[in-house]
């Protein structure tokens, strides 16, 4: 028997939903914005960036709502002496909740900004717009304009006014009916569907994920490159969960628990499959600019897609995680015994 005879391929798919937000609500987040006399807007928060990019996407949402250049929006987080309350970064809630709070604060600050600019330009605030490049212009009259920094200076030194805004977002807390389970456990739903292709070595039990092709629907993307980062990073975590990772290899027994990265197996760059994804954007009804959220869900679809592909390749029905070589070989033995 040739070496390649032991390798079989299979394809599997899975499709999932993922809810945004701390499930039962009651998880407020606040944002404060003020214009300094430097021409910058400072957004004060107590929210955290885990690497997913909160500091970036919040600055984008702030800049979009204010109508000012991205570079002039400064994120000041996270300090409980300067930042207002945020429930935290978890439950795919940060972009949705904090983003909504920032939009609210930015709208209030923008109104204050336009009021001062209106005085300076001798126009009605309703006739003004921000050009996104740091100027406030009279609609349709491009040469009647004032820069944001001059407006901020005028507000402070001439009018004695602040340019600031307050924002909060809270989904009221939902109670669960203990008898029926009736509840309101989310704010919106994101979706994913993954097609996995695997190759299983029936001699060694080793599984190689050949490809993962996924569609994601995450509402409006704030920063597609960061969304892609979540999708790819989550996919590799999904491969790890599907094939290698556990803190208790003999669960429920607790012995031989890994204490280091030599024993806790995770996929490395050599385990990367061919990966392709498309992102659909159906704006949510309640997220900032229609955001849904993508932080948590990206491992969830690859895991079952990979295991379904293994079962498809082998003609078995493995039902446990992780699918280690031992699990594969036992499933094959069982199949042989039944034949």
């Amino acid at each position: 028997m040739g070496v390649n005879m032991t390798k079989v391929r299979g394809q599997g798919m899975a499709a999932i939903n993922y809810p945004t937000g701390m499930n039962l609500g009651g998880d407020p987040s606040q944002a404060l914005i003020h214009a300094s006399t430097t021409g910058n807007f400072i957004i004060s928060l107590s929210s955290t960036d885990l690497g997913q990019g909160l500091k970036t996407v919040i600055a984008q949402i702030g800049a979009e709502t204010l109508g000012v250049p991205f570079d002039t929006v400064i994120i000041d987080t996270a300090d409980t002496d300067t930042g207002p309350h945020c429930m935290g970064t978890f439950a795919s809630r940060a972009t949705h909740r904090v983003g909504n709070a920032v939009m609210m604060a930015a709208n209030e600050a923008k109104k204050a900004l336009l009021d001062v600019a209106a005085d300076e330009l001798e126009a009605s605030p309703d006739d003004l717009e921000l050009d996104g490049n740091g100027s406030i212009v009279v609609k349709g009259v491009p040469d009647r304009s004032i820069s944001v920094i001059d407006t901020a200076l005028a507000a402070h030194f001439k009018h004695g006014k602040t340019i600031a805004g307050r924002g909060i977002y809270m989904k009221p807390k939902s109670k669960v009916d203990p008898l029926t389970g009736e509840m309101d456990p989310d704010s919106t739903e994101a979706h994913a569907c993954t097609v996995a292709e695997v190759e299983v070595d029936t001699e060694t039990g080793e599984v190689k994920v050949l490809s993962l092709k996924s569609a994601y629907e995450v509402g409006q993307q704030v920063n597609p490159a960061l969304v892609e980062g979540q999708i790819v990073g989550g996919a590799l975590m999904g491969i790890g969960h599907a094939l290698y990772e556990t803190t208790n290899p003999y669960y429920p027994a607790i012995d031989h628990g890994p204490l280091n990265f030599s024993d806790y197996l995770m996929p490395g760059p050599a385990e990367l499959p061919e990966m392709e994804s498309v992102v659909l954007e159906f704006p949510s009804s309640n997220g900032p600019y229609g955001v849904k959220g993508v932080g948590e869900m990206t491992a969830n679809c690859p895991i079952p897609a990979i295991v379904n592909a293994i079962n498809n390749a082998l003609g078995v029905r493995i039902t446990t995680l992780p699918v280690t070589p031992e699990v594969v070989l036992r499933a094959l033995e069982e199949k042989a015994a039944q034949a």
């Binding site: 990019g53 500091k55 970036t56 600055a59 984008q60 949402i61 800049a63 979009e64 109508g67 991205f70 994120i75 996104g132 409006q220 993307q221 704030v222 920063n223 597609p224 490159a225 960061l226 600019y289």
Partner: peptide, 10 residues
């Protein structure tokens, strides 16, 4: 203007 753009990480 900014939402939907892949601006660099802050």
């Amino acid at each position: 203007r900014v939402v939907g753009q892949s601006v660099p990480r802050r």
